[in-house]
């Protein structure tokens, strides 16, 4: 055994981190990248578009009641039966729907990831209890929960938001818990313990970052899920209330007028469908880029 251990090894030319490689792969996916740009356009349009108009979505213009889409300034897509500009209302409704979507997904995601990471890492009886609790909550009827929460919070957007988060953090928790469980058995976790790290440090510094690729993919699917449930609840009339607009209640009122004027349904419906499509394509691209089985 005459191997010279002191012959110092030099590193190979630098390569990118896993995360950077994954994003590089994502950028090669044209459909996903187009979706990113289109989604960005819609988001910017919703948040800044209404400022281009001399009125808000709640201002009634009595000279134009139920005006058709004639693509002329200022009522490009016409007005509704109260004389409110349809395009501005849809854009403002988009603000509400998109905000609830992204914020809801973020909050539900953070809660779910932390809960799942702790359960999977701690294991044993605590894990059993935590996951049984999740299963019980899974069994809870969603719509009844929303009604209960609206009573509790006195209605309004907060109740809606709380109800959406309350039901949607469960799935990320289950997904992350499975991932955390397999990570907890890896040797680098043991090395971290030998290095004197506390359980909380291990969860935050090792478990959560290593669940990130799953979380990013799932998170991008969570956003459309939140938007859909907001729309669904608003459609049922227990979500966002008139006169405030959201894509859900716009579609709802559009549906009741669809026999005479399809445009009231089409504009919010098409925008919602576009956003959902974009988010699903993005999620798909992220999954292709991040899935470890694909490497």
């Amino acid at each position: 055994m005459s191997v010279d251990v002191l012959s110092r090894e030099t590193a190979p030319p630098p390569s990118a981190s896993t995360l950077r490689l994954q994003f590089r792969r994502f950028r090669k996916n044209h459909l996903a990248m187009a979706s990113v740009w289109l989604l960005a356009l819609i988001v910017l349009g919703c948040f800044f578009g209404p400022y281009a108009f001399p009125f808000t979505g709640e201002d009634a213009d009595f000279d134009f009641i139920s005006a058709p889409a004639h693509f002329q300034w200022p009522h490009l897509f016409g007005t509704d039966e109260f004389g409110r500009d349809l395009l501005v209302r849809v854009l403002e409704g988009g603000q509400v729907s998109l905000t609830i979507g992204f914020l809801g997904a973020l909050v539900a995601g953070v809660i779910g990831v932390l809960y799942g990471a702790v359960a999977g890492f701690v294991g044993g009886r605590a894990d059993g209890l935590m996951m049984r609790a999740v299963e019980i909550l899974y069994g809870f009827p969603y719509v009844i929960l929303v009604i209960l929460l609206s009573l509790l919070f006195g209605g309004g957007n907060l109740a809606l938001f709380a109800a959406i988060v309350f039901t949607l953090w469960l799935t990320p928790a289950v997904i992350v818990r499975a991932q955390a469980q397999s990570l907890a058995r890896r040797e680098f976790i043991e090395a971290a313990r030998a290095g004197g790290m506390t359980g909380r440090q291990i969860v935050l510094e090792h478990i959560v970052p290593n669940c990130m690729s799953v979380v990013i993919v799932y998170g991008s699917l969570l956003v459309p899920e939140v938007i859909l449930s907001e729309s669904f609840l608003s459609f049922l009339g227990i979500g966002i209330k008139e006169p405030q607009a959201s894509w859900g209640n716009l579609i709802s009122s559009g549906t009741s007028a669809m026999d005479s004027d399809l445009r009231l349904l089409l504009l919010p419906g098409v925008l919602l469908a576009l956003v959902l499509l974009c988010l699903n394509f993005i999620a798909d691209g992220l999954r292709d880029a991040f899935d470890p089985n694909d490497r």
């Binding site: 896993t18 995360l19 890896r186 040797e187 680098f188 043991e190 090395a191 971290a192 030998a194 004197g196 090792h206 970052p209 290593n210 990130m212």
Partner: peptide, 17 residues
């Protein structure tokens, strides 16, 4: 710090991130 350990699977012992 005074008592350390090294492992059988050297790659699994390092956090990939």
């Amino acid at each position: 710090a005074e008592m350390q350990i090294i492992f059988q699977d050297p790659v699994a012992a390092l956090d990939p991130r």
